[in-house]
Design a binder for these strands. Structure first.
Length: 884
RNA sequence: GGGUCGUUAACUCAGCGGGAGAGUGCUUCCCUGACACGGAAGAAGUCGUUGGUUCAAAUCCAAUACGACCCA
């Protein structure tokens, strides 16, 4: 019994995948070699958040990286793929707080230290879970180099960068307007705010002019903020208001006198063309306030209720306050009108609470000096976005960037390395924890309570994971990394920040290419989210269908950068493909008995052999080129088509007779060799996409080595590509299809033998079929095949197919319905006519003849010739049938 | 308001200057010694609309409609 027959007829990934992953890991195949003389290929994994488990987006992201890593490794690159996780400050803290809440606890009940212990516990649990999931997916990352954004090395990098930027004056602390989340109780950066259109109102309010009966009407969407108004602005030169410039209004409800001034920011078309200015609670007003030296009056507390500056409204929650203010304005006769108005409202990315813009004391990174070189490197092509269009997304954002608020009023994260002297007020920022004040020697030092934005540490990931700021071997050999693979949703959050951080800290770009992919959507095209409950756990898919299937189904036929809808149908189809690969391999293995490896001579190869070998070599080139261009979707599809259609449906079928009824032992050995070689080539090409099944099959193949992972990536051998073999095979396939078509149309049973006569126009074509007529006999179930150059009498009782190189007849005495056959031919005649007209129109067009490239003209000539021949054949055939 | 992407067969999507493709579904036949998670054959599309460039446009350009997303 051969190996093949002992294999199950249905592939079961569950029995295979875990085993090989353990093997690969134990053999250390994922780690790069110490031989740093080889060209390197390195990727750092976008670190998943330790907030929970991986979703399909991570599965896609890591599949893409694993394909690139496995492929480059096989190509001989010293390949390093660094895995790791992100502490995800605000997100993780929120999850742990939720958890605490279920025990009736708040973080302040525990205190900073105890709380952090809880978070570390959480991190261990979910960090491990993520590691497990990445393993299940087959990720060939080097676990010995696994990192975490808050491990010692990364923390050292964070500290170094902070101090560095601080010393250069690129980090500063100050009172500026920031986005405050009243639920998370922390400042957040501009990009952590999500804007959503909402139906609101536009309140028109009268502001009386000081010492006058006149008044001015302002329009606002947020009347409660008027309590903090410190000015009214109009567009410069707006004649409606020019006489009021320099005067004051008396702020209703508060009685404060505030100035009227001009500013270009004001849109004269919006509302009344006059706006109230609240510098402490609106970013635009903040800027105007700075331009015109206005007072900033914060009227809210950290939980977004009104503070003592709100006078009588102190203590009210901001929504209640709004209602009360409107009511009071109305009572006082200040309310002119209320309009329906749609406007964008900012929400916290994490908890969806409405953001309160607020002036607050925070730490910032000065962005202009960092952004400029970061834009330049991309413009210069030192960093290339794939697809290219994301370059614009990146540069547009970088060009309009504002300073980055990096302090967070959280506990989970890197604590800001700044101390304040309690005695003299000195601010100390240093690499080592200070013990005494350098100014007054006091030991009363207090560290800043805040932590850094979680993206501050992610921004350093490509070099912090390689050992920076130490001059490590990994840093020397693997930095800059080769490519960054990530989703289009974090270009701003992460990619941009890695670029400017890398350039600033290491003097080099962190990577040369950025491969951006889209998002995984649900079957209806919606983003997967917790609230919709439409998320799919990759583990569920892996358990049902296997990791290879999940990987392959997510990327097949997907355009780079485009979103992907997750379809169970497609997963199932891919499962079928896995099974196809399995069974084709099983077939090959089943027929390996008595196989001794032989050296096959070229003239021993049949047409089918030469055809499949040619096709394989062309496929090697095609797949390699596609991978080079990051067209992984097309590459996967190319493998699918080649394996299923060309290898299984044609080559294996043609191999059968030679395996089952060989003329001699040598003939069988030849076909066995070709089958094995082609299968080996297929497995290697497929391995990066489907690592598990390819390893499993590989290990059964005669002559295999340790692992398919260490096999070299195939290279096209031009000497094995024979275009004539491909052409000849195509002609024969065409004839087979024509006969099968006739069988189907005339309901000839599978077992019914048919006779076929082929009439050739010349000996060249006939020769092709003489040598390989057996293909037609075998695959079209033809009992008798006559090849002729002349027919004494063309059979009337026959069905015909007109091929470009021959006329094909299937005599069907008694079976054929002449009228039906005439109808069939007339339809074909019409199609042929269209072909002739189209090609003909081109060929009589002088401009076409003058301007089109010669090969295109030749092609058109060929088409028309071929169609004319077919037409002639059809006409003759019709004559015969009609008995004319 | 600015920007990006999409609009191709019933559905989900490839293709992106020279004869409309795949998978699923549908119709017909077939358990033919790898696979019914299979094989064979077939039906099915004025490639959103309107202009333009070109010998040639699903493919390039410009408008436009609709949908999705991003930024403000």
């Amino acid at each position: 019994m051969s190996i093949g027959t002992s294999l199950a007829s249905v592939y079961d990934p569950e029995k295979v995948e875990g085993k090989w992953y353990e093997y690969w890991k134990s053999q250390n195949y994922f780690a790069p070699s110490d031989d740093f003389s080889k060209k390197h290929f390195s990727i750092v994994m976008p670190p998943p958040n330790v907030t929970g488990q991986l979703h399909l987006g991570h599965a896609l992201d890591n599949t893409l990286q694993d394909i690139l890593a496995r492929w480059r490794r096989m190509q001989g690159y010293n390949t390093l793929w660094v895995p790791g996780t992100d502490h995800a400050g605000i997100a993780t803290q929120a999850r742990v707080e939720e958890n605490l809440a279920s025990e009736g606890l708040k973080r302040r009940d525990l205190g900073r230290e105890k709380f952090l212990e809880r978070v570390w516990e959480w991190k261990r649990l979910y960090g491990d879970r993520i590691t497990k999931q990445l393993s299940l997916l087959g990720s060939s990352c080097d676990w010995s180099r696994e990192r975490f954004t808050m491990d010692e090395g990364c923390s050292q990098a964070v500290r170094e960068v902070f101090v560095n930027l601080y010393e250069k004056g690129l980090i500063y602390r100050g009172n500026y307007i920031i986005n405050w989340c009243p639920k998370c109780m922390t400042a957040i950066s501009d990009i952590e705010v999500e804007h959503a259109d909402s139906d609101g109102h536009l309140w028109h309010i009268k502001y009386p002019i000081e010492d006058s009966d006149e008044f001015l009407v302002v329009a606002t969407t947020r009347p409660e903020t008027m309590l903090g108004d410190t000015g009214v602005a109009v567009h410069p030169g707006d004649e409606r208001y020019s006489h009021l410039i320099g005067k004051n209004v008396v702020l209703p409800l508060m009685g404060r006198k505030i100035p009227i001034f001009e500013d270009h920011y004001v849109d004269r078309e919006f509302g009344t063309g006059a706006v109230k200015v609240t510098p402490a609670h609106d970013p635009n007003d903040f800027d105007m306030g700075l331009r015109h030296n206005l007072e900033q009056i914060v009227v809210m507390t950290a939980d977004a209720s009104m503070n003592e500056n709100a006078g009588a409204y102190a203590g009210l929650e901001r929504q209640e306050c709004r209602q009360q203010v409107v009511k009071d304005l109305e009572a006082g006769g200040y309310l002119v009108k209320i309009e329906e108005h749609q406007h964008a409202v900012g929400h916290c990315q994490r908890c969806d609470t409405i953001i309160e813009p607020m002036v607050s004391l925070q730490w910032f990174v000065k962005m202009k000096p960092l952004a400029e070189p970061a834009i330049q490197k991309v413009v210069d092509g030192e960093i290339r976005f794939i697809p290219e269009r994301f370059t614009k997304t990146y540069t547009n954002w970088m060009e309009n960037i504002r300073d980055w608020c990096i302090s967070r009023q959280l506990w989970w994260g890197h604590r800001i390395p700044v101390w304040y002297c309690q005695d003299c007020g000195e601010v100390i920022c240093s690499r080592e924890n200070p013990t005494s004040c350098p100014a007054c020697s006091s030991s009363e030092l207090k560290q800043d309570e805040d932590v850094l934005d979680t993206w501050f540490s992610s921004a350093l990931w490509p070099f912090s994971t390689l050992g920076w700021p130490n001059d490590s071997a990994d840093m020397q050999h693997f930095y800059p990394t080769s490519v960054l693979v990530t989703g289009r949703d974090i270009i701003f959050f992460w990619v941009a920040r890695m670029i400017f951080s890398g350039i600033e800290q290491t003097g080099k770009v962190p990577f040369h290419e950025v491969n951006i992919h889209g998002l995984i959507l649900d079957g209806q095209g919606r983003k997967m989210s917790k609230s919709l409950g439409n998320g799919i756990d990759p583990i569920e898919v892996i358990e049902k269908y296997g990791a290879d299937t999940l990987r392959f189904s997510m990327i097949t036929g997907v355009t780079p950068g485009n979103d992907v809808r997750f379809q169970w149908d497609k997963v199932e189809n891919t499962r079928n493909f896995s099974n196809k690969v399995w069974n084709a391999s099983r077939f090959v293995l089943m027929n390996m008995e008595e196989f001794e490896p032989i050296k096959v001579e070229k003239d021993e190869l049949t047409l089918a052999d030469r055809w499949i070998i040619s096709r394989l070599n062309l496929k090697i080139k095609e797949i390699t080129d596609l991978l080079e261009r990051y067209e992984l979707g097309e590459a996967a599809r190319g493998m699918y088509d080649f394996i299923w259609d060309e290898f299984c449906d044609w080559y294996i079928e043609l191999a059968k007779p030679r395996l089952f009824h060989p003329a001699n032992g040598r003939e069988k050995a030849v076909v066995q060799t070709v089958l094995l070689d082609v299968l080996m080539g297929i497995l290697k090409l497929l391995h990066p996409f489907m690592p598990f099944i390819t390893e499993e099959i590989y290990q059964y193949l005669p002559g295999h080595n340790e692992t398919i992972m260490l096999e070299s990536w195939p290279i096209m051998d031009q000497s094995l590509v024979e275009p004539e073999a491909v052409e000849q095979m195509q002609a024969i396939m065409g004839a087979i299809r024509a006969i099968r078509n006739i069988r189907a149309e005339f309901n000839l049973s599978h077992s019914a033998p048919v006779k076929v006569i082929m009439l050739f126009k010349d000996g060249h074509g006939m020769k092709w079929f003489e040598d390989y007529g057996s293909y037609i006999k075998d695959l079209a179930k033809v009992s008798e095949l006559q090849l002729v150059l002349e027919l004494i009498e063309k059979p009337r009782q026959a069905v015909s197919a007109l091929l470009s190189f021959a006329e094909l007849y299937v005599p069907l005495e008694g079976v054929i319905d002449v009228d039906k056959e005439i109808g069939r031919l007339e339809k074909e005649l019409k199609i042929t006519g269209v072909d002739i007209d189209r090609a003909g129109a081109k060929l009589i067009n002088e401009k076409f003849l003058a301007k089109a490239p010669p090969d295109v003209i030749e092609k058109e000539k060929g088409k028309i010739e071929e169609a004319m021949l077919r037409k002639e054949g059809i006409l003759q055939r019709l004559q015969i049938l009609r008995g004319e």
